[in-house]
Computed example of a mutant assay.
Amino acid sequence: MWNSNQRKPASTGDHSHANDTSLIASGTRIKGDVHFSGALHLDGVIEGSVSADTDSNAVFTLSEQGRVTGEIHVPHAVINGIVKGNIHAGERLELAAQACVEGDVHYRVLEMAAGAQINGRMVHQKESPRQITHQAEEASGVFDDDVVMDSGKA
């Protein structure tokens, strides 16, 4: 059927959005909220919030020509344009040299180039409480499923 030198055709039943990329070109202005999966590259303007599922690998890229006036809630973001609003990057935030953020920046991992500007608070987000609790349970050897009973009798 298929040897190692031949590529298999893409499955028509695969509904994964991990490799999908959407482009909003320069000269395009969107008034309203945008929710996406996969990747979103913005060269234009969004007046509203930008969001993706926090448990996905979605990536939002804002070019040097792009602008967002509103909140950004994404797992991964690469910012090189203007943001007037708070940024919540659940996993990784990269601020390139032309980035200008007027708002608070919430991140787990931050990479910031010389020249990037933030006019607001920078807030480091630790791992989610559930993950920290689970790690603490593993370290102590006690799990939610463990039941410890003390009858009070010696």
Rank of each mutant, 00 (worst) to 15 (best):
K84H: 15
S51W: 00
V101W: 01
T12W: 11
R7M: 01
Q117F: 04
N5E: 14
Q131M: 12
L62E: 12
S151Q: 08
A77R: 08
A97S: 15
P129H: 05
G48T: 08
T21D: 04
R29W: 00
V105G: 11
V123E: 13
V101G: 08
D104R: 09
H35Y: 08
W2P: 00
I46T: 03
L42C: 05
H15R: 09
S22N: 13
G152H: 06
V109R: 10
I118D: 10
D55K: 15
A89K: 03
E91C: 05
V101K: 06
H76P: 01
V45E: 14
M149K: 14
M112W: 00
V123N: 14
V147C: 02
R121V: 09
P75K: 12
G81R: 01
S49N: 12
V45P: 00
P9S: 09
D20H: 10
Q131K: 15
D55T: 14
R7L: 05
H76D: 10
A113P: 02
T54F: 03
F143I: 04
A18R: 12
A18G: 06
A39P: 00
E94A: 12
E94G: 00
R29Q: 12
R121E: 14
I82N: 09
A136D: 02
R108N: 13
T54V: 10
F60M: 03
N57T: 13
T133C: 01
A99I: 12
G70V: 06
M112N: 04
V68A: 06
M1Q: 05
I132R: 13
N3A: 00
Q125H: 07
A97H: 14
A39D: 01
G152Y: 07
L42P: 03
I132S: 08
S63D: 14
D53Q: 14
E94N: 06
D14V: 08
K153W: 02
L62R: 08
H73A: 08
H88I: 13
R121T: 10
H73D: 13
A116K: 08
V101E: 07
T28Y: 05
L23Y: 15
G70H: 07
I79F: 02
L110C: 10
Q135T: 08
S128Q: 12
R7H: 01
R130L: 11
G27W: 04
P129R: 11
Q117D: 03
E102G: 08
S63W: 10
R29F: 01
W2V: 01
A89D: 04
E137W: 07
Q65D: 14
V123P: 10
Q125M: 14
G27A: 05
R7N: 04
V34E: 00
V83R: 01
D20I: 14
E127G: 10
D150Q: 11
G103L: 09
Q117K: 15
S49R: 12
K8R: 11
V45F: 10
T21W: 03
K31E: 14
H17D: 12
H134N: 09
N3R: 05
A52L: 07
G120L: 11
V105K: 11
D53Y: 03
E94F: 01
M112C: 11
E47N: 11
S49P: 00
W2M: 01
T28M: 11
E91P: 00
V147E: 10
S37C: 04
D144S: 11
V109E: 07
M149G: 09
S128D: 14
Q117P: 01
S56N: 11
S16G: 06
P129A: 13
D104M: 11
H73W: 03
S128E: 15
T133V: 06
V147G: 02
Q98D: 15
R92S: 15
G70I: 03
